[in-house]
Nucleic acid binder design. Sequence first.
DNA 1: TAGTGGTCTAGACCACTTG
DNA 2: AAGTGGTCTAGACCACTAC
Lengths: 249, 249
Amino acid sequence: MRDNDLSLKTAATAGVSRYGQIAAELQARIVSGDWPPGEAIPAEGVLAKEFGIALGTIRQAIAVLVQHGLLERVQGKGTFVRKGLTGGSLMRFFRFGGADAVTAVPRSEILSCRSVRLDKAMAERFELPSGARGLAISRRRWLEDKPRLLESIWLPLPRCEALQQLPVAQWGDLLYPLLGSQCGITVHRAVDEVTFRTLAADEASLLELPDAHPCAVVTRRAFDLRGTCIEYRLTRGDAYAFRYTADIR
Amino acid sequence: MRDNDLSLKTAATAGVSRYGQIAAELQARIVSGDWPPGEAIPAEGVLAKEFGIALGTIRQAIAVLVQHGLLERVQGKGTFVRKGLTGGSLMRFFRFGGADAVTAVPRSEILSCRSVRLDKAMAERFELPSGARGLAISRRRWLEDKPRLLESIWLPLPRCEALQQLPVAQWGDLLYPLLGSQCGITVHRAVDEVTFRTLAADEASLLELPDAHPCAVVTRRAFDLRGTCIEYRLTRGDAYAFRYTADIR
DNA sequence: TAGTGGTCTAGACCACTTG
DNA sequence: AAGTGGTCTAGACCACTAC
């Protein structure tokens, strides 16, 4: 009942079901920032009353967003908007040194950071008009005093302007928290693609590896809460340190 | 009500909740073969009556097993026990030739198949006593008249005896359907681990690649419905044909 | 038309967390 | 003790699939 105004093409689970519509409405509030990451959303009973539906239905709507990784439920405490990815998750692909190295955050050394004109494919990825500008960042990452990874990062430029103002010395080692604090962007999902090739001469010297050494290449596209691509990243590392586990079904 | 005898340590979601217990009971029936793969299980209403619970509760129990990949629901038709993996899923890691090659099943050439004494680690994997025997299979897989993959496969031996009787000419190209029809084993889950190294001389010649060519190694452990490991497989292929996509959150 | 799963209601009580 | 999510009930009606 109650003709709640649910005008949404948020591309959530919006079937025609009531809980699907409400899930989309909740998602809209999260994306808009009404309910910021880390905060609790109103209790089930409150929401049920607001939407004029039964408890079971609002629970179903919430379950959808939990499934999508947007919400997190904690018994006795409440339902919380999930914080974005920390970015350290890239280390899942590599095993350098000892077991402690798995959780360690590699030190970041910014090699360069400049505004560039994006090529056609990159602009399309970022849903920007052809010829738009972006931020091109080159970064080297260290673990235990050894250079381990080489990263080329592209960011869409109107959105990430704030980064240009901030001295690279204040960037810290992780990009995603920076995107959150400086640009108000929450990285909610990332798609990684792994391939294999050999290192070019300049890459090899930066990683202190022999020329033409085999390397694993991880191509990452990261997305914000709305599902818009907000990062394109190319990471290169020693192929012999690569190790990845996939669970099928 | 109804002290249904739910004696189960099936390690399902068995919390103490009613639906958790029932989920475990349903799982037991699937594992035991009461409800074979591909078949429909009784309707919600029937099960609800049998267990003496409400419809919503049996639905919750079924949802658990759907989540675990054991059941599949189809509106208007029923709830079905999922068939096992087809095995072709290994090709997800490689892209040989054209786009059609993604779905194609590579031809299998059995290089050798013999009974061996399993080493300690392998016996433990299969939950067999130390010194137990197993089947060691060496296989080469072809795509479009080119050798593409090299596989070393170990199977636990009392369980897979039937394979020894069957002439390799009748094996066909896929192992998992064979395990199903010959040994009554359903492969329900697999864990793959990827690393990189270079090819040994004998491997390189079998794959018609230069000696010491870079290769991707996929180590697979496959599990049956009970969660017991029933295959250990080592697959080697050209590293330059490797490509894998991971979706984070 | 009959049977299936999908959605939804309006309650109840329990388990956990916090002040 | 108050507030939260977790479990469970006993119904209702709808949408899809078969025959």
